[in-house]
């Protein structure tokens, strides 16, 4: 486990600040929020959904949420994992998506981010049909849900930071 605290980094919270101390009043939240970030983006067993694909999916969500800080964060992570920039171009629409599996993944990211209740059984069937394992479908669902969670925590931390 790394010493980095991703939420403090994203919200611009210094480790010795009052807001960092406030967050430490919820030690389980600090620990397992970072822990979730670690296992969602750098799992020991990726279940067939690669780290680069995970970063790319997160970048897509950051774009949909129009959060510049999250966008830069996931773009940097994706660049490190996919220096060719191929996945990044498909996320931003600069390149045509020609692969059914990745197309289905991005479509699902968009669907669930925009409308949390929009998914139907057929959407999950589609992911399985293009070759995702049950593990990968659950991992993708956790990832989409986590980045949406993360954006709300970030908004609250910015609110607290601005008001102090």
């Amino acid at each position: 486990m790394s010493d980095i605290d991703v939420m403090n980094t994203l919200a611009g919270i210094a480790p010795d600040s009052a807001l960092a101390a406030l967050r430490r009043q919820r030690p389980d939240v600090v620990k397992h929020l970072q822990g979730s970030d670690d296992v969602i983006f750098s799992p020991s067993d990726d279940g067939g959904l690669t780290r680069a694909e995970r970063a790319a999916a997160a970048l897509r969500i950051a774009e949909l949420l129009r959060d510049g800080v999250l966008d830069a964060h996931y773009r940097a992570r994706l660049t490190a994992l996919d220096p060719s920039g191929t996945l990044a171009k498909t996320v931003t629409g600069e390149a045509q998506i020609t692969e059914g599996r990745w197309d289905a993944i991005l479509a699902h990211v968009d669907l669930v981010t925009r409308g949390p209740g929009s998914a139907e059984r057929d959407d999950i069937e589609e992911l399985l049909a293009v070759g995702l394992s049950s593990h990968a479908v659950v991992s993708l669902s956790q990832l989409i849900s986590y980045v949406n969670f993360q954006s709300r925590v970030l908004a609250g931390l910015r609110l607290l930071k601005g008001g102090s």
């Binding site: 919820r26 949390p116 925590v153 609110l159």
Partner: peptide
């Protein structure tokens, strides 16, 4: 501050839970 942080965490947790619940079943 702590109460606002707690509320933020709870609401955010359901941005997560609502998507899992409605994506993986019904």
């Amino acid at each position: 501050d702590l109460e606002i942080l707690d509320l933020t965490h709870a609401v955010a947790m359901f941005a997560w839970a609502n998507r899992l619940m409605q994506t993986l079943g019904e």
